[in-house]
């Protein structure tokens, strides 16, 4: 145990935790929105994120950009990659909804069935990237770790005086990007007409239908929005880690789901709080002990918080007026 290491660099470790947590939070939004509207955990959401990382690689490969390109090229390629990742992830989420959930909903299947088809979709998507694409297209598909060119290279921006904390461009992009996307989503759900529909269906699907809200359209919308957020997370992830892999969604998905529960599943702001808290707890634990203790600590935190607040930190409330 090394508490000195934690306290001597507390600012640095907190920043590391927020970086890690921002990505958890963005992915957690997908779980939380779908749960808020449908009372369903979309277990295929981890693969929605995974598809996004491949879209980023696809754009970089198609453009032929690599590390050390000019500023204009970097910005252009990154924005294009963002767009592609959001489209790919939203498209995947929508396809999962169409294939795995909608037919069952029409037939009035019991809730448990949705979980199984969700897990099924997740495995199919993993195998498509790990096996099927490898058979048809060869490298880089397959069960290997794939390098993504670090088009956006890490550069020091400034040092916070007094704290000796160096802020890099990638950190700023990840943290600011995640927070801006969450604020935008929060505003959209709370202020826009479509958002009002989402809240109405979350509160009471039957009454919402009677009032003229198209439930199927709202469900489509939450899958698209959740998917797009996972796409943003995918780009930020590739900026930070420069890799992808066929099963990369598994651990991120598990952590994001945990973050959603921690913050209060169904609650958008809860996803942010849960994600950041989880990221910080993991980094603190890894610093005090080592990374093999990160999961232990994270889940102990989860259990303890749920013991006292069974609905999570901020409670379940996509339908409530405040979120």
């Amino acid at each position: 145990m090394d508490f000195d290491a934690l306290f001597s660099g507390l600012d640095r470790h907190t920043l590391d935790g927020i970086t890690r947590g921002s990505i958890y939070a963005l992915v957690a939004l997908g779980y939380t929105m779908v749960y808020g509207v449908m009372k369903l955990i979309n277990f295929a959401h981890s693969e929605v994120f995974m598809v996004g990382t491949w879209a980023v690689l696809g754009v970089y490969t198609a453009l032929g950009v690599s590390a050390g390109a000019g500023l204009a090229v970097v910005i252009g390629a990154t924005l294009l990659a963002l767009l592609a990742a959001m489209l790919a992830s939203a498209g995947t989420a929508l396809a999962v909804e169409r294939i795995a959930y909608r037919p069952l909903r029409k037939k009035g299947a019991p809730p448990l069935i949705f979980l199984i088809t969700g897990i099924g979709c997740s495995i199919v998507l993993v195998e498509i990237f790990g096996q099927v694409f490898k058979v048809f297209f060869g490298a880089p598909f397959g069960r290997v770790t794939v390098n993504i060119p670090s088009v956006l290279q890490t550069k020091e921006l400034f040092t916070i005086p007094g704290l000796d904390l160096t802020i890099t461009n990638t950190r700023v992009i990840i943290i600011v990007g995640a927070i801006v996307m969450m604020l935008a989503l929060d505003t959209f759900v709370n202020k826009s007409r479509l958002g009002r529909g989402v809240r109405a269906v979350a509160q009471d699907p039957d009454t919402a239908s009677l009032m003229g809200v198209n439930r199927e359209r709202v469900i489509m919308l939450v899958f698209i929005l959740g998917g797009a957020m996972a796409g943003v997370a995918a780009l930020l992830y590739t900026i930070q880690y420069d890799i992808t892999k066929f099963d990369i969604g598994f651990i991120i998905g598990l952590k994001a789901f945990t973050a959603a529960v921690l913050g209060g599943i169904g609650n958008l702001r809860g996803a942010l709080v849960g994600g950041l808290l989880l990221g910080i707890a993991e980094v603190y634990a890894s610093t005090i002990w080592s990374s093999e203790w990160a999961n232990v600590t994270a889940f102990v935190v989860l259990v303890v918080i749920l013991m006292f607040r069974p609905t999570g930190l901020l409670g379940e409330s996509l339908g409530k007026a405040r979120a």
Partner: peptide, 11 residues
């Protein structure tokens, strides 16, 4: 010590 499957090595 780190873990199999880990991708964030910030600590």
């Amino acid at each position: 010590k780190t873990e199999v499957g880990q991708t964030d090595f910030a600590p």
